[in-house]
């Protein structure tokens, strides 16, 4: 079945059928990457540019592997954000890349809306690999894939996203995608990290992590930014860890069999204790493997569209 979307800009507005199709296709590719020869010829002759305006080794490597395993020609174009202001404009960079005749652009950028903007100035297929604090749709898809893999379905599953929701691109993609698939999404974190209008997206808000653990089947735990700039949103790492960190005692106290996801990289001992990060509840490394399969599915479905 062909997707109705032409680009993957976000999960906002993407239909249930499209998400279903991507997740089902990913199951096939998940099987491919377990083979001794992890490569299929599906995108042979297609050129994919990974246009990264922000450092993200993990996401870039995951896309790169997905592209290579589909036999696409892939190349990386990384631009440091510091050169943005004085160097070539974004539009000129894109036009230059397109002049080399490429088919798809995977874009990561610190500014929200850049993938949408790209569709206006480019003729290529656009895949959003994270734009500012807006969306990170392939992360949302791989999270859904991982939940479905463990729990067998998404309908009715209660998922709580824990941490800095205001500055997360993962949160919005999870909210849009999971809600479309019939899951019940909530968020948990200190009030300073929860956007004041988030309830209008139909999500519940928890300020108490124990309540959140009690009420949910899945915790998607976000990485806390430890940089100084982020520090105006919470008093100290110690305080964050004390009230929102998830450790074995907290899970045992709540006697809850929750599934724990984390988009990585983990701050061990902050949002997750080392024990929990390596423990029986988590699927963190499965997420990484599933990420390649999901990205292969997205590249394949969009790359073979007319």
């Amino acid at each position: 079945m062909a997707l109705s979307i032409k680009h993957l800009l976000g999960l906002d507005g993407v239909s249930r059928e499209d998400i279903q199709e991507i997740l089902d296709t990913a199951v096939t590719f998940r099987e491919v990457i377990e083979r001794p020869i992890k490569k299929v010829p599906t995108l042979q002759g297609k050129t994919v540019v990974n246009l990264f305006y922000e450092n993200s080794t993990r996401t870039r490597i995951s896309f790169e592997l997905a592209e290579r395993r589909l036999s696409a020609d892939s190349l990386n174009f990384s631009v440091s954000t510091s050169s943005v202001t004085k160097g070539e404009s974004f539009k000129d960079t894109v036009r230059n890349i397109e002049a080399m005749k490429v088919d798809m652009i995977v874009v990561r950028h610190a500014s929200a809306g850049v993938p949408q903007y790209l569709t206006r100035i480019s003729g290529s297929k656009i895949i959003n690999a994270g734009d500012g604090t807006h969306e990170h749709p392939t992360q949302g898809l791989l999270d859904m894939y991982s939940i479905r893999e463990k729990l067998g379905h998404l309908e009715g599953v209660r998922v709580c996203i824990v941490g800095d929701i205001s500055h997360s691109r993962v949160a919005l993609s999870n909210i849009y995608g999971l809600t479309t698939m019939g899951a019940k999404v909530s968020v948990c974190g200190p009030a300073t990290m929860i956007p004041p209008f988030i309830k209008e997206l139909g999500v519940d808000v928890y300020y108490n992590i124990d309540d959140a653990i009690q009420a949910n089947d899945v915790l998607n735990v976000l990485r806390i930014q430890l940089e100084r700039k982020a520090r105006e949103y919470f008093p100290s790492i110690r305080e964050y860890q004390k009230f929102y960190g998830i450790d074995t005692q907290r899970l045992e106290k709540n006697k809850k069999d929750v599934l724990i996801l984390h988009p990585g990289p983990i701050n061990r001992g902050v949002e997750l204790s080392a024990e929990v990060a390596d423990g029986e509840h988590q699927v963190i490394l499965d997420q990484v493997t599933n990420g390649v399969a999901v990205r292969m599915a997205v590249l394949f479905l969009l790359g073979t569209q007319n």
Partner: peptide
């Protein structure tokens, strides 16, 4: 920020 703070900025991920 870059636009009015409200449900639209929340959805668009803009400050």
């Amino acid at each position: 920020g870059a636009m009015h703070e409200g449900i639209t900025s929340t959805k668009l991920g803009l400050p």
